Amino acid sequence: MSVLNKIKGGLVVSCQALPDEPLHSSFIMGRMAIAAEQGGAIGIRANTKEDIAEIKQQTALPIIGIVKRDYAGSKVYITATMKEVDELMEVGCDIIALDATDQTRPEGQTLASFIKNVRDKYPDVLLMADASTIDEVINAEKLGFDLLSTTLMGYTEKSKGMNIADQDFEQMKQILAAVSTPVIAEGHIDTPEKAKRCLELGVHAVVVGSAITRPQLITEKFVNVMQ
């Protein structure tokens, strides 16, 4: 079964913790991935080759890999250069996700040029476009991405204030009507009901992170309502 078929119609759990977060540890992310699998997840999204190597020791689920790294003069930080792609290929990710926004990239490289370089070096790897607007999703399809994702919607200057779940996923409906490449719903999906609705609309799979794997944010959500 192909990787795309393995994740179709299911939940991918994002197991990530940045250095300033309490669960930052490859060991902990490995255990988090086991917990996600036991709960029924059909894939894992993970950050850094170290975390991914540990997760691969703990589960055989397909992995969407990224490397978050800041670069001077650019707001692009998700798998921004070939350095990050090389690191992910070292540990054998099933899918590599990268920033597909129209923001200035490191060293001024265009997204089209970057994708061509990746395809030339790793022709068989599946690439997922983390986009923030409908136009960016459409452009990513034109560039030949294997998967299109709403990961960054609401997290860039151009998409500030956007929420993929608003108005019964109106923007998601527009995306699905505009492209034929499989679409991954990610970002602002914080309830099982929202995840189910995405599948009903026709997305390929759903990625959920903070609502499942970041206990400090889950706790804060409870506390804010209780006060």
Score class of each variant (00 low, 15 high):
N224T: 04
V137C: 14
L127H: 03
L127W: 04
H204M: 05
N163H: 04
V225L: 11
A131I: 00
E193T: 06
R214L: 01
D124S: 15
D51M: 00
N139Q: 15
F222Q: 02
K194M: 15
I189Q: 11
E136N: 07
Q174A: 14
V208K: 08
L176R: 07
E37Y: 05
L176I: 12
A60M: 00
V85G: 13
S113L: 09
A177S: 15
A35M: 02
V183F: 10
F27K: 13
E157L: 10
D135C: 00
I96H: 09
V91N: 10
I115C: 10
V118S: 06
V207E: 08
R214F: 01
S113G: 02
I164M: 15
V207D: 11
Y71H: 13
G92T: 12
N139D: 11
I218K: 04
T150A: 06
V12Y: 02
Y77E: 08
S113R: 07
A33M: 13
E136W: 06
E21M: 15
L111K: 06
N5Q: 14
Q38M: 15
K158N: 06
V179I: 14
P123Q: 13
T104M: 09
D102C: 04
G73P: 13
N117W: 00
I175D: 06
Y71I: 01
T59K: 02
I134T: 14
V208L: 11
I63L: 04
M128P: 06
S180G: 10
I175K: 03
T81N: 07
I34Q: 13
K56E: 03
Q216C: 00
K49C: 09
L126E: 12
Y155D: 14
G202T: 10
S132Y: 02
V206N: 10
V183A: 12
L23C: 04
D51Y: 12
V118D: 06
F145M: 13
I164D: 02
A46W: 09
G9I: 01
K56N: 02
K158S: 08
I28E: 08
I138W: 01
L152G: 07
T104I: 15
L176A: 09
D20K: 09
H24K: 01
A177E: 15
L111N: 02
I184S: 08
G161V: 06
A80E: 03
V76Q: 03
A185Y: 07
I78P: 02
A36N: 11
K49E: 15
S210V: 14
A72M: 04
I44T: 13
I28G: 06
I138S: 01
I189D: 12
N139C: 03
L176M: 12
R197T: 13
D102K: 07
A97K: 11
E136V: 04
A60I: 04
N224Y: 00
A112Q: 13
S210R: 15
A100G: 05
D135Q: 11
A41I: 06
A97I: 05
L176H: 08
N163K: 14
T59P: 03
G209I: 11
I96Q: 09
I44F: 14
E193P: 00
G209A: 08
A177F: 07
I78T: 14
R69M: 12
F27S: 08
I134P: 04
